[in-house]
Design a protein around this nucleic acid. Structure first.
Length: 344
DNA sequence: CATCCACCGGAAATGTTGGGAC
DNA sequence: GTCCCAACATTTCCGGTGGATG
């Protein structure tokens, strides 16, 4: 890693950074500022990755006398794990596994009700792959419902209608708030704000930011890119610097997305990457990916997982918006999936 | 119109880990 | 310690899919 004289403070370029001011989203801001955490109402923030859903949720949902539980469901993927996190946040007590889910529910109900709780379930799609439906049903009917508000965040679904049972959908009554992709001008502004905080003065050419802003609408990708550029440039960051670091920036963005997942998720992704590179024309389907994945496992002396399991992992890569998947339920090639990398 | 492709995806089975009661 | 009961990751099993092909 190059020595660094451009970076003054790396934090503003990190994914977890919460800016004091947010780039223009007036409609969203007004809808969120009307949100009352003691109303028992629920929100669904939906839109593509890198549109600021998580940041907005954190920024606007700090209330006095209200406990906020933020849980990212790419790490906590089952009802039990989410409830466990909620319990730990509410009570600061550790709790193990091995209890009944209903025990955990009862313990939590004893703790809620005194004051409002806002529960943010980010990446809720991953929860819904498992028993998230049961969790949402339970939460929608919990005692003292008016003291619990849910903020669900999804990058893949603009409504829960198809994702949960009818009875859950109707009792949740979510207010849906869309996040449209940023336009180039806004991405530019956002990068500029962060760069001013993170970098020393005179660290970059404006064309460098312009290049990033015209290439991606995904703010998360853009910020990873800017950070990589700052870390790997000695003098002023130029448009050429940025352009030549494009692949590495995307690599680090992918690593960041895959970080909560297993080594096998990364191997499956690598398998798709390799096949994608070798096969510019031919389509890649599930069997080829599994075959290549097994080869990689052998190369790294890892025990490979079953194809049934990898089928689920592919679904998760799809939810991370790393791959495009077209499903064939029979036909010329039988029942399979056609898989493509999503290009930067 | 029967057969085949090649895997989908639900469900049951298996194995591991941890908890509480005795 | 022993026993039983959870949660959870993973494997095993298998019925099913629908256009292409002959």
């Amino acid at each position: 890693m190059a020595s660094n004289n451009l970076l003054r403070d790396p934090d503003p370029l990190k994914p977890s950074y919460l800016p004091e001011t947010l780039v223009d989203r007036e409609n969203t801001v007004s809808q969120l500022s009307e949100f009352d955490p003691s109303s028992g109402r629920n929100l669904l923030l939906h839109g593509p990755r890198g549109t600021g859903k998580t940041t907005f949720a954190h920024h606007f949902l700090q209330f006095d006398d209200t406990t906020t539980c933020y849980i990212s469901c790419d790490q906590f993927t089952t009802q039990y794990q989410v409830l466990k996190q909620v319990y730990q946040i509410l009570t600061h007590e550790e709790i193990g596994t091995g209890h009944h889910t209903s025990d955990l529910q009862r313990k939590i109900e004893e703790r809620t009700g005194q004051r409002p709780v806002v529960l943010i379930l980010d990446e809720v799609d991953f929860l819904l792959l498992n028993d998230g439906g049961s969790l949402l049903y339970y939460l929608s009917r919990i005692e003292n419902r008016e003291n619990l508000s849910l903020i669900l965040i999804s990058s893949n679904h603009s409504s829960l209608k198809e994702q949960v049972e009818e009875r859950t959908y109707s009792s949740l009554q979510t207010n849906r708030i869309p996040f449209e992709p940023y336009d180039g001008e806004t991405v530019y502004q956002l990068l500029k704000n962060r760069a001013e905080k993170a970098l020393r003065p005179q660290s970059l050419h404006r064309e460098a930011l312009g290049y990033i802003a015209s290439t991606t609408q995904n703010a998360s990708q853009a910020l990873h890119w800017l950070r990589v550029a700052a870390e790997n440039t000695e003098q002023r960051i130029t448009e050429e610097d940025v352009a030549s670091l494009k692949d590495q920036a995307y690599r680090e963005y992918v690593d960041h997305l895959l970080q909560p997942f297993t080594e096998h998720h990364r191997l499956v992704y690598q398998a798709i990457e390799e096949l994608d590179e070798e096969n510019k024309v031919d389509t890649v389907n599930t069997g080829a990916v599994y075959q290549r994945y097994q080869d990689l496992c052998q190369a790294y002396e890892e025990e490979s997982l079953s194809n049934r399991r990898i089928s689920d992992y592919l679904k998760q890569l799809e939810l991370l918006n790393l791959i495009n998947v077209k499903y064939y339920y029979g036909g010329q090639n039988g029942k399979t999936r056609e898989i493509n990398l999503i290009p930067f």
